[in-house]
Computed example of a mutant assay.
Amino acid sequence: MAEAKEAYISILEKKLAELTGIEVDQIKKNQFANAADEAVAIREMASYVEGIVVQQAGVAQAGTVSPQIAQMFAHINAELGEERGAHALPPLKYDFNALEPHISGMIMEIHHTKHHQGYINNLIAATKKLVEAEAANDVSAMNALLPAIKFNGGGHLNHTIFWTNMAPDAGGEPQGAVAQAIDESFGSFQSFKDKFSAASVGVKGSGWGWLGYCPNQNKLEIATCQNQDPLQITHGLVPLLGLDVWEHAYYLQYKNLRADYVKAFFNVINWENVNERHENARKNAGH
């Protein structure tokens, strides 16, 4: 594990030198190690999937399959139109450096092409083993795959939403129906901003800050999720706006100042996308 982390640090050092000309020797390696945490988690999950052994048909014991497995694939299909196992990296609708100076192009490139792709690779591997387990009727193996499907499927889903939630020359205050909903749910945009920022900064370890829609109460709520847990499965909220607060998403630029990163995020929020998500969520809920 230490060798894998050092190898990833070496790649980041080379990339940083190519793109910025910064003397890497002047930057503490623990900063890169923090940025490598997600890559390590992805590799560990790949090993976890590989270690699950599916019993032969007729040997496996029956049981109840966790409904979260089907829910995870259903949410991915609703967002991306992808059938189970047919997952691919969605292209960005803007250049890697288009969100600068708020989010660096180097972070965006590594985040999108390396980390997000890693989730997809693991999700495909987990799905293949799930098909094998289903053929053998090995419910134990199916349920053992849930953490991998939830982590990697959530990583795929959450990042897909995150990319669309941002845009160049965006930010500011929202307009339209979502602006009214924010006022009704939180009192004012500033109140929402304060609460969303506090929740996102306050996530313990790695996770996400979310603005979600509650179908039952027809209102907006702020919530947080650990690691890559999907908002809808965790809290029953439809995701409208998500902020990745894993250290890899900001550490190379903001170091340990997560609050500065959260503040900068408000300069790139694509409120048109949030409005569209809000409208669709309300329609689907019959409101």
Score class of each variant (00 low, 15 high):
Gly63Val: 07
Gly105Glu: 08
Asn77Arg: 01
Ile182Phe: 01
Ile69Met: 07
Cys225Leu: 04
Asp37Met: 10
Ala199Asn: 09
Lys93Asn: 14
Asp169Gly: 00
Leu257Gly: 00
Ala285Trp: 07
Glu18His: 04
Glu221Asn: 10
Gly154Thr: 00
Ala136Asp: 05
Asn216Ser: 13
Ala167Ser: 07
Ala88Pro: 02
Lys28His: 04
Glu38Arg: 14
Ala78Asn: 14
Asn30Met: 11
Leu146Asp: 01
Asn121Ser: 11
Gly155Pro: 06
Val238Asp: 11
Asn256Asp: 14
Glu100Lys: 09
Asp25Ala: 14
Ile11Leu: 14
Leu252Gln: 02
Ile222Gly: 14
Val40Thr: 15
Gln228Ile: 01
Gly207Ser: 10
Ile233Asn: 09
Asp260Pro: 00
Ile149Met: 08
Val65Asn: 11
Arg43Asp: 03
Tyr8Phe: 11
Val59Asp: 14
Ile222Phe: 12
Ser140Trp: 07
Ile269Lys: 02
His159Gly: 09
Thr127Asp: 08
Ile182Ser: 02
Cys225Pro: 00
Leu130Phe: 06
Val59Lys: 11
Pro168Met: 03
Arg258Ser: 04
Ala125Val: 00
Asp37Thr: 12
Glu44Ile: 11
Ala74Ile: 01
Glu38Thr: 08
Gln26Ser: 12
Ile222Asp: 15
Asp25Pro: 04
Gly236Glu: 06
Gly212Val: 02
Lys5Phe: 15
Gln117Glu: 10
Phe96Thr: 04
Asn34Asp: 10
Glu44Asn: 15
Ala133Glu: 05
Gly21His: 08
Val59Gln: 14
Leu123Arg: 05
Gln226Pro: 08
Ala98Asp: 12
Val54Ala: 11
Asp169Pro: 01
Glu109Lys: 02
Trp271Ile: 11
Leu130Pro: 07
Asn216His: 08
Ala88Ser: 07
Thr160Gly: 15
Ile52Val: 01
Thr160Glu: 15
Thr20Ser: 07
Tyr213Arg: 10
Trp163His: 13
Ala7Leu: 07
Gln228Ser: 06
Ala57Met: 03
